[in-house]
Design a protein around this nucleic acid. Sequence first.
DNA 1: ACGCAATTCGCATCAATTGCTAATTAGCAA
DNA 2: TTGCTAATTAGCAATTGATGCGAATTGCGT
Lengths: 135, 135
Amino acid sequence: MRSPAELTQAFRQTGLKVTPQRQLLFRLLHGNTSHPSADVLFALASEAMPGISLRTVYQTLNDLATMGELQSIDFGTGSARFDPNVTDHQHAVCNECGAVHDVHVSRAPKMSGLEGFDIHDAHIVYRGICADCAS
Amino acid sequence: MRSPAELTQAFRQTGLKVTPQRQLLFRLLHGNTSHPSADVLFALASEAMPGISLRTVYQTLNDLATMGELQSIDFGTGSARFDPNVTDHQHAVCNECGAVHDVHVSRAPKMSGLEGFDIHDAHIVYRGICADCAS
DNA sequence: ACGCAATTCGCATCAATTGCTAATTAGCAA
DNA sequence: TTGCTAATTAGCAATTGATGCGAATTGCGT
Ligand SMILES: [Mn+2]
Ligand SMILES: [Mn+2]
Ligand SMILES: [Zn+2]
Ligand SMILES: [Zn+2]
């Protein structure tokens, strides 16, 4: 995801308005590696801007996802997680605390057993216990 | 997942009863490689047994999952998919028709960028267009 | 055949997300 | 700076997949 300043330009160029609510979310998401849910972002946003609506948080997240500025990922944890890192990477999910960490694999694994399937992308989810929870 | 006959034994040994509804689901699931949702199973079950409840389908699926006879997988398609194949394998999901196919990878990919994470298992989801939809 | 714990199934409930819309506001142009 | 107008906000209703509940039913060990 680009910086709040760059997003401001991008939004205006697309005919979208730059509101205080959106600027706040730009700031909360930029460089955020915690893979927050809409709930969590709503809680964070509410601290800085009491009265902001959960609906608005969803709206802005969807706008950003549509623009390709962030990805929405479903790890089966009940709610979608949002990731401003749209570069190619994988995830490790802790079974204990639910934390999601970025990881990388050296090379995309080849699959076998299926002919004629045109692969667009492959996503790997590692599940286990994170360093914090192991102690 | 074991055969309907074996499951009948296993259920009774666990103190669970073997009802006609459960026997039907045993049959519908055994050797099923289509990764059906609860909805789809309910539709199939309703053909053979009109009046069966969706609640009962969920109940039985949860029982089987708890016993380790099948796995519940969330591909982010809106509803959970159920897989009676509990051996180590991966999946390819068609972006067009939503079909889920079993695939295999030669070797589990190593991840890097995270210290002290104890990996229990890794799941890979390939997304793209299946052979049927390509034509 | 009996007794009782397990099961079924309809309905209420829940959680995450989206639909709808009246009131508000950003941003452009005069 | 002011005014116009389309975009946005925010509250609430609705939706969807799934679970909680409980009265009526039924499997199954004795
Ligand atoms: Mn990430
Ligand atoms: Mn499978
Ligand atoms: Zn953890
Ligand atoms: Zn397809």
